[in-house]
């Protein structure tokens, strides 16, 4: 039991990561694939945020009577990674839009036959 509760955050990370990857691999709908990628990336964001947490530490703001802070660096890194994730989603969704107008569908199994898949 302690293995589960002591590493609760990490279990969440692992489970979310697997769900995300599973969706990317199995989903038929391209929008769902993008959503899967998002879940996969969010899991990594959570992993970074978890490692910045210091037990008993507060937010890293200078205040009286506080001596222990969480590590702000991973949080800042993840702000950058979130921006990258948003940009990837935007490019992915705009590609889906153009695929829809070019092929008339975004279901993978429906256009697989129409093109020379490599």
């Amino acid at each position: 039991m302690s293995l589960i509760f002591e590493h609760f955050n990490h279990w969440v990370v692992v489970i979310l990561m697997m769900i995300g990857l599973y969706i990317v691999i199995t989903a038929n709908n391209l929008v769902k694939k993008v959503v899967g990628l998002n879940i996969f990336q969010s899991a990594v964001f959570l992993m970074y945020i978890t490692m910045g947490k210091v037990v008993g530490g507060t937010a890293p703001i200078l205040a009286e009577g506080v001596t222990q802070y969480s590590n702000p660096l991973p949080h800042v890194l993840i702000l950058t990674a979130i921006v990258v994730g948003v940009a990837t989603t935007a490019v992915g969704l705009s590609l889906v839009l153009r695929i829809k107008s070019a092929y008339g569908t975004i279901e993978e199994n429906e256009f697989q036959n129409k093109e020379d898949v490599i």
Partner: peptide
């Protein structure tokens, strides 16, 4: 138009 699906596949693989 096949460049679109190629780019999408590249995006998925590249992001992973």
């Amino acid at each position: 138009r096949r460049c679109l699906t190629a780019a999408f596949r590249y995006l998925v693989m590249g992001t992973i």
